[in-house]
Design a protein around this nucleic acid. Structure first.
Lengths: 169, 169
DNA sequence: CACAGTGGGTTGCATAAAGAAACTCTAATG
DNA sequence: CATTAGAGTTTCTTTATGCAACCCACTGTG
């Protein structure tokens, strides 16, 4: 299994993507950053879509198949994420227009959330086999913990400093 | 900007992850710690309930009012969390039985996820007013970042080392 | 004693969202 | 000319959520 090369080029908000969809999640009376975040990405599929894009699945059908999500729901989610400036849609072909989805800087900044879930899941969902994948520091090869700190060199890492390799499982 | 190699794919399905509880979320074909975590707590209210309990709202009506969640849904969520061993229900009075809800160790271990969401939300949802709440190190009073590191004394903190106080907003 | 209030839920019904599957559209390929 | 691929729509069904009302066993108040 070879890792996928991902272009993390970041772009600005695309005003062409108009969408009248509303944020149907409304946690009333919450003046809390956690609640505010959850309004945007705290919903069934969003984080898995973001993980998939991070993983290199940039196209509609790839994501749909990998996630097993209904196609109409995937459409809605992607539009919501685009509207929230987390995902960017780029046409890679005209004629029949074809698109790929990329994470914006804001989307990439959700990496800590994914790492936190990964750490928790490794501890409680895969306790005896060990983590199915390890996140390692590209430069020195040390494993990265859920604080995004390299266990070998001690550096505090950003998303671009790390990669995922098969774990002991 | 150079391409980044990231692969959060996960290889093998672990039967230990199977839970006889009714996980109505089923992300088919996902054999990944992130997906596994989201099956348990990646749903509309769970994390907010956990946040509430962490902040000391331990009783049904307190949570119901603070969250604005429907009562029947709160019942269901709490039962799911209890079943998943994230929340523990303790009777504090007999006669008419009265209960309080506490986090188990497993529940407390979700603190990193909350801190990651908090960090993201502070950055993107409350950019001008500043964070509505600050997490501080109880011992030295320094603020805690989303790596759960005290900015003042540099220590790596656990959930019991920190507390939440009103922020500048 | 009557009656309101409190804590911790259930029940029933209406609506909103998710899922499954079929359909569309355009262009390229055989 | 038929088929395939990518990226969605459309339609229909199932599931989840929200809302309001109700229940029950006390407890405190006049």
């Amino acid at each position: 299994m070879q890792p996928t090369v991902i272009d993390l080029t970041v772009a600005s908000r695309n005003p062409a993507c108009d969408n009248r969809s509303v944020l149907y999640h409304d946690y009333p009376g919450q003046h809390c950053s956690i609640a505010a975040s959850l309004e945007v990405v705290g919903e069934r599929w969003s984080l898995l879509i973001i993980r998939d894009i991070l993983r290199g699945r940039r196209r509609f059908d790839q994501m749909q198949e990998s996630l097993g999500i209904a196609r109409n729901v995937l459409t809605k989610r992607l539009n919501r994420l685009i509207e929230a400036d987390i995902v960017e849609r780029r046409r890679y072909q005209t004629g029949p227009d074809r698109y790929e989805y990329f994470l914006t800087e804001k989307g990439l900044d959700l990496w800590p959330v994914l790492m936190a879930y990964l750490g928790w899941g490794d501890k409680y969902c895969e306790p005896e086999t060990g983590p199915p994948r390890l996140i390692v520091h590209k430069e020195c090869g040390g494993t990265v913990n859920d604080r995004r700190i390299c266990q070998k060199c001690g550096r505090e890492l950003e998303v671009r400093d790390a990669e995922s390799i098969p774990g002991p499982a």
